[in-house]
C-alpha cells in the first residue's frame, strides 16, 4: 500500500489554477524527485500535502488516513483537526531557506518539537538529537546558534530537526537552492544517505543529475500539470516525451 496517495489534486488561487489533476503514489522507502521549470507548481504541491496551503479539490490519503477526500456533496473536504494533526506529526518538511528558530541553540531546535509535541522526556529527546547531529557530522555544533553556522550546516540541522520527529515521510522543498555549489554537495550527500537508509522522501529539486542518481521515481511538472512520471531510465531515456526531453536538454546544455 502506498504511504502517500494523491489523486486528481487541484489548487487554485482565485481564478488562477496552479495545480491541475495531480495524481501520484509514494511507496514506503521510495525516493521521489519532482522536477520542472520554475512556477510549475512543484512547491505548491508540497505545501498542499503539508497543509501549508489548502487544496481546492481531489484526494490526499496518507498512511491509510483520509486527509483530504471528496465529501457527500462531491466537493473535497479536510479531515477533522485530530487526524490532520496526526498527519502533520508523521510528515516532515525541509525548507529552501531552512527556517531554523534563531533564538534557540542547534540542540534545542531539534529537541523542542519532540519534547513539546511528542511529549518525550528532555533527556530522551537530547539523546536522539545528538545521534542525529552525529549522523550529520555536526555533533560539535550542538551548543551553537543557527547564525553561527554556514548555510549547508543550517540545512543539515533542519534535516535533523525534521528527522527527530521520526516522520513516515520527509519532504524537501528545493533544499539546495539557497546554497552555493560547494555546500550543495554536502546536502545532497545527506539526502543520498537517507535514501540508502530507506527513508521515504519526496524531493523538489533542480539538481537533475542528483534526481537521476537517487530517485526511484521522477515526476516532471509543468504549468500545474504532471507531464510525465516514471523511473529515471524512462524520463532520461529515449522513450521520454518530447517536452521532457526538451526540458532536460536545456538543463544539461547550461
Amino acid at each position: 500500500m502506498a504511504i502517500l496517495e494523491v489523486r486528481n489534486l487541484s489548487k487554485s488561487f482565485g481564478t488562477l489554477n496552479v495545480l491541475n489533476d495531480i495524481s501520484f503514489d509514494v511507496e514506503k522507502g521510495e525516493a521521489v524527485a519532482v522536477i520542472g521549470p520554475s512556477g510549475s507548481g512543484k512547491s505548491t504541491l508540497l505545501r498542499c500535502v503539508n497543509q501549508l496551503e489548502k487544496a481546492s479539490g481531489g484526494t490526499i490519503r496518507f498512511c491509510g488516513m483520509d486527509m483530504f477526500v471528496p465529501g457527500p456533496g462531491g466537493k473535497s473536504v479536510y479531515a477533522d483537526k485530530q487526524t490532520l494533526r496526526k498527519v502533520q506529526e508523521k510528515t516532515g518538511l525541509v525548507f529552501q531557506n531552512f527556517n531554523l528558530f534563531p533564538h534557540m541553540t542547534v540542540l534545542r531546535n531539534i529537541t523542542e518539537a519532540p519534547v513539546c509535541v511528542l511529549k518525550k522526556s528532555k533527556q530522551e529527546a537530547q539523546e536522539i538529537a545528538m545521534e542525529l547531529l552525529k549522523k550529520m557530522g555536526l555533533e560539535t555544533k550542538a551548543k551553537s546558534y543557527p547564525c553561527e553556522l554556514s548555510g549547508g550546516q543550517q540545512q543539515r540541522v533542519s534535516i535533523a530537526r525534521a528527522l527527530a520527529m521520526n516522520p513516515e515521510i520527509l519532504f524537501f522543498d528545493e533544499p539546495t537552492s539557497a546554497l552555493d555549489p560547494e555546500l550543495t554537495g554536502e546536502i545532497l550527500k545527506v539526502i543520498k544517505e537517507l535514501a540508502a537508509d530507506g527513508m521515504t522522501m519526496v524531493i523538489v529539486t533542480h539538481e537533475m543529475n542528483f534526481a537521476r542518481g537517487v530517485a526511484d521515481k521522477i515526476i516532471f511538472m509543468e504549468g500545474g500539470y504532471i507531464v510525465e512520471q516514471g523511473d529515471p531510465e524512462q524520463l532520461f531515456g529515449e522513450n521520454a516525451s518530447e517536452r521532457t526531453k526538451q526540458f532536460l536538454q536545456r538543463y544539461s546544455s547550461i
Binding site: Q88, L93, F101, E112, A113, V117, L118, S158, A162, M165
Partner: peptide, 14 residues
C-alpha cells in the same frame, strides 16, 4: 517575524 517561522513550527506539529 518571517512567515517561514510559523510554517516551520506548524510542520513540526506545534
Amino acid at each position: 517575524i518571517p512567515k517561514g517561522q510559523y510554517e516551520a513550527s506548524r510542520c513540526l506539529g506545534f
